[in-house]
Design a protein around this nucleic acid. Sequence first.
DNA 1: GTCTATAGAGAGATAGAC
DNA 2: GTCTATCTCTCTATAGAC
Lengths: 210, 210
Amino acid sequence: MLSNVQTSKTIKSTKEKILEAALELISRYGYKGASVRKIAKAVGVRESAIYNHFKNKDEIFQEILKSLFSSDFSDFFEKKPIEENAKKGKKFLMEYAATVKLATFDPKHEKLFKIVLLELMQNKEVREQFLNYFYDNNIKKLSHVLFLMMQEGLIRQSDPMLMAREFFAPLFYLRLEVTLLRVDEKSTVTLSTMFEKHVEFFWESVAVRA
Amino acid sequence: MLSNVQTSKTIKSTKEKILEAALELISRYGYKGASVRKIAKAVGVRESAIYNHFKNKDEIFQEILKSLFSSDFSDFFEKKPIEENAKKGKKFLMEYAATVKLATFDPKHEKLFKIVLLELMQNKEVREQFLNYFYDNNIKKLSHVLFLMMQEGLIRQSDPMLMAREFFAPLFYLRLEVTLLRVDEKSTVTLSTMFEKHVEFFWESVAVRA
DNA sequence: GTCTATAGAGAGATAGAC
DNA sequence: GTCTATCTCTCTATAGAC
């Protein structure tokens, strides 16, 4: 697990250090570009020492893969019953967008997102996790909430699945753009306000006026 | 230029063959994964022969880079004056979506799109071309058309730039999903109808009812 | 568990014969 | 313009001493 890496004062084991260095390097250079040499150097050990903790390079990557899609929204939908969320209407969508925005600018999540982008075309596992993750955790659950909102009469009738995609896609594209700009350390101020603007526009598009 | 590669009956020069093989291999394995060895093998010559046509591997990639963003929409906005497009309303948006759909399923464009995805995080040039291309050729020009549609009273008043993003992002996300599915030769039938559905939904969201 | 040393494969690129 | 041969570098991974 990479989750308790940040727990301060922890005396990191070599294994933890390897995972940390690998995450950093792979998010920068991709799987191929992040050589065992570079990882070892970043940790401060010899290459051979790596193999005391992992069978091979791929096992390091597999360990990181586990945390790729586990964090962002794992408990976003769980913390409150979905019916409650639906009643909140626009407020819920704002919270959702805020969660995406947070993940976009959070260093750890940013690294994981970069790895997804880097390996999406190369790694079948990443590809399938990507498609499933966004489908299940975003489109599918979103569509459920939207369906309930339709029943509440808050938003207009439409295909909930389609509507969920329409809500989700601009957030994804926004996240992609921000991530790319940040790679080159370019300003993202214009884009960072777009998360909220998107929700406003979307709500304007679907809300049923009383 | 890669543009006349398809001209049938052409006796392809070695240089053309190299570019063709490189396009294929890079779109599959990325720049790093497409080694000069593999390219030479695909062409049917020795590695050293490659260097008679290109200074180095990077020069091959640069040649391909040129065609990355040149094709899709280069003349889509040019063939008709923008004012005419605006008057067509929903019909114009349908044509636009159809163009994206066509590019999504066209083998040549698909390869180029894959290369963009593969190198987006690795190559600064690709990154900048990506951001500029989608901004200029899509968001910016789209926003112009949408602005005119607002003036015609066809659609509701809003920030044209924001609206252009809202129209564009779902198409991009759709293209991404389709491309990923096709890598693993999975069915894309459900998604392929989404291009039109998106336009319907969008129009429903912005159209001014008479 | 870390080190040195090394194997073995694959990468990009060049020299020189034909 | 293509070939053979070769150089040099980097990569993943292992053996064996400490």
